[in-house]
Simulated assay, not measured.
Amino acid sequence: MIHPSEQVRTKFGEAVDEIVNLSPHGRWLFQQADKYEIDWGVPGGGSYTIRHGDRGVIAIDPELKGNPAAVAAALFHELGHATYHPPRVDGDLAHELERLEIEAPKEVGRWVGNLVGKGKEGAELGKRLGFGIEKATEDGCVAWNVNQDLTDEGHAEMTRIICCRQAKSAAKQRGDRRLEAEADEALRFLGNEVVQRGNRSWEQMQKVMITRQGADFQLGQWIGDHLHPSTDPNSTYRDYYEKGEWANVALSFEEKERLEEEPAPGGFDGNFIRPSELSPYQPWVQSSCRVDPSRYRDRGRGR
Rank of each mutant, 00 (worst) to 15 (best):
Y48H: 15
D61S: 09
R88P: 06
D92S: 11
E63G: 00
D90A: 13
G56F: 10
G80A: 04
E63R: 08
A69S: 14
G80V: 03
V89C: 04
E63F: 01
A70C: 04
L93I: 10
G66K: 05
D92L: 15
G91T: 11
R88D: 10
I50T: 00
F76E: 02
G66H: 03
A59S: 12
E98Q: 13
H52Y: 15
G80T: 08
H85L: 10
H52F: 13
V71M: 04
H81R: 04
R110I: 13
I60Y: 04
I58N: 11
G45S: 13
H85W: 11
P86Q: 14
K65R: 14
A70I: 04
L93E: 07
V108C: 01
G66D: 03
P86S: 13
G66Q: 05
L97T: 05
P87H: 10
A73I: 06
S47G: 12
P62C: 07
G45R: 01
E96R: 13
T49L: 03
W111G: 00
E107W: 14
H95Y: 11
R110V: 14
E107Q: 15
E101Y: 12
G80Y: 10
E63V: 01
P87W: 10
E101D: 11
R51C: 07
G53F: 07
H95N: 12
I102H: 13
A74M: 02
V71W: 10
D92N: 11
E98C: 10
L100Y: 09
E96D: 05
Y84E: 08
L93A: 08
G66F: 08
I102A: 13
R110L: 14
D61A: 06
D54T: 14
A69Q: 04
G45Q: 08
R51K: 15
E107S: 13
R88K: 15
V71F: 00
H52Q: 15
T83N: 14
